[in-house]
Design a binder for these strands. Structure first.
Lengths: 231, 231
DNA sequence: CTAAATTATTGTCTTTGGTACAATAAGTGT
DNA sequence: ACACTTATTGTACCAAAGACAATAATTTAG
């Protein structure tokens, strides 16, 4: 047994992995990239890379996501940190997951740098991924599910204008249940959502009203009183 | 501008900081240690230290807490990760906060290793601490407040047998409001708590009934159905 | 032009849970 | 027996949740 010097502790590396969620065809999807580099070359993974020595974490997460997928202006939030000593084959690399919820149609993800391809993959149809990325996605998805109960983040996944049916489908997928249509709508009547007089068009049945979320009103509600979103 | 090599990224260090909460005299308290070592020698801080090269994070958090305060068998949970490049004066040290809620009376914290003293400090009376520890505590306390709404973690802070008044005081401190006594009790009637026939003794007024939380029942409820704790 | 098909939306009734506030109970000390 | 203190229950009202029936607005087939 020998003593470890202080400098011997500066032999770690630190990375960030971005779990980007979207909603498509009634299912939550995750953004994946195909690695063009060892280790795990040609395997699918979530976009992630090492942090620069003088870089702040939030800024690094954004930089990495842009470099690999050209997705910019995405609102990333920290999730769990993973530090199993064997999670990276080339050394001790600790990683923090950062997550974001985006409208797939409003962004255009394209591969760049050492990302060979990008794709949106349904969360319930994931193959085996590089590193411990399956575990990272799983843990981050659990966090998403928890947050959906108490924060109005569902609207980040839906189009600017959405039908109540779309909203209900999203919640039914995430909570893996079904809700009574009439009661689900009634609940929303009591929430600061603005009913759009505008209606759907080009549908082959009775058109639905379109709704949109008033995030300004929400912001003022939470700062003034202690309003608590719930659904 | 020169190219950064892969090996140049292995110059980081990684630490864990333990935010231990307790409840005392109607206030949430945090466990602090006095540093007997540079940097920030003689300053108060939360117990934390560097992770060993082959050590898992959860295990490291426990080891560090034991080494500095002799608190063992504490149930630590990961909170936020802090990585500002200037947060540590001697190099790039990224740190993850781990938090625990304990019954102060059931544990005996004593200083060890380079911890000179330990003390419980009320959360609303914190002085300036070492590193970014004030920010770490603040962020972790926010997490505690969120969790208290949806998880039965309040019982980790109260004695095994508690009065409904004690429980109410805890919630009133954390939420910084007051509740109607009668209604608060009525709410608890609908929750899996076991009413103890046992009563308080040695008090100079009508003795209160003592209650205790049935964590076994809670465990089976959340695994079987999708029960959601709420208070 | 009418009816069927499809999806959207509203209404009614019942039950549950929250809030305000008054009333009663069980101890101690004088 | 009485005041004092804290604990606990009761009553009346209202908002929101759940079950389920009814109605509305479109397109399309005939």
């Amino acid at each position: 047994m020998y003593k470890i010097e202080f400098k011997d502790f500066f032999t770690y590396s630190f990375s960030l992995d971005c779990v980007i969620f979207g909603f498509q065809n009634g299912k939550i999807h995750v953004l994946l990239i195909k690695r063009a580099m060892e280790p795990f070359k040609n395997k699918w993974a979530i976009p992630g890379d090492l942090v620069y020595p003088d870089e702040d974490l939030a800024a690094a997460a954004n930089r990495i996501l842009v470099e690999l997928t050209n997705l910019s202006m995405v609102d990333l939030h920290q999730a769990e940190t993973f530090g199993n000593p064997n999670r990276h084959p080339q050394g001790r690399v600790i990683t923090s997951a950062y997550m974001a919820l985006i409208r797939i149609a409003d962004f255009k993800a394209t591969p760049a740098s050492w990302a060979e391809e990008v794709k949106w993959q349904a969360i319930d149809e994931l193959q085996e991924l590089a590193f411990d990325h399956n575990a990272i996605i799983q843990s981050t998805y659990e966090l998403l599910k928890k947050k959906m109960r108490t924060e109005p983040i569902c609207f980040d996944l839906l189009p600017e204008r959405f039908t109540l049916n779309e909203l209900q489908c999203l919640y039914e997928f995430v909570y893996t249940t079904t809700f009574d249509k009439a009661n689900f709508r009634k609940k929303l009547k009591h929430i600061p959502l603005i009913k759009q007089t505008e209606k759907q068009a080009n549908v082959k049945h009775r058109p639905a009203k379109l709704f949109s979320f008033d995030s300004q009103l929400f912001q003022s509600l939470i700062t003034q009183s202690e309003y608590q979103f719930k659904l």
